[in-house]
Design a protein around this nucleic acid. Structure first.
Length: 149
DNA sequence: GCCAACGTTGGC
DNA sequence: GCCAACGTTGGC
């Protein structure tokens, strides 16, 4: 089993939206590395830290898990949508998404707090210039965060 | 709103 | 295949 951190801008999709929906397709990822994680590595049952980014208080705010393995992201075929990709076809899809299920809301663990723990110093999200919206999390890091939540 | 960091695009 | 230009991300 693997562990992941998935970023979402609360103005796009917040923990409240997630709690309302229960589960959601993680569509709209348009970065090859993040796509490859979903398509090639993420398995049902993998644990996910749900993270609010680009907002007043960025941080971890929920625990989730992969509920459906990757399949072609429907939004790439929607001509009128924001995520339309003219180079993608149903025969040759370019983008994929998994689905994730919210396991539980947690208190907000702010980015500042994450940064304060030496145990978490190697997390991808803390590295300079990191912009990946989906990053692998070390099992020990995940366990440490669980304990602190 | 600013700006550093990074990915992608496209001309050559 | 190089690399400058451009767009996006995301913390502050």
């Amino acid at each position: 089993m693997r562990y992941w951190l998935m970023k979402s801008e609360p103005s796009e999709y917040s923990i409240d939206d997630f709690a309302r929906d229960g589960s959601t397709p993680w569509f709209g990822v348009r970065n090859y590395q993040a796509r490859n994680f979903m398509r090639d590595q993420m398995k049902v049952g993998d644990k996910v830290l749900f993270y609010h980014s680009s907002c007043a208080e960025p941080g971890i705010t929920g625990l989730a898990e992969v509920s459906v393995p990757a399949y072609p992201d429907a939004s790439q075929f929607d001509r009128d949508g924001h995520y339309f990709d003219p180079k993608a076809t149903p025969e040759n899809p370019r983008w994929f998404n998994v689905e994730v299920r919210l396991v539980k809301r947690t208190r907000l663990m702010p980015l500042k707090e994450i940064r304060s723990y030496p145990e978490l110093a190697n997390m991808r999200i803390l590295q300079r210039g990191n912009r990946l919206s989906i990053t692998p999390v070390d099992p020990a890091e995940y366990a440490f965060i669980l304990k602190k939540l």
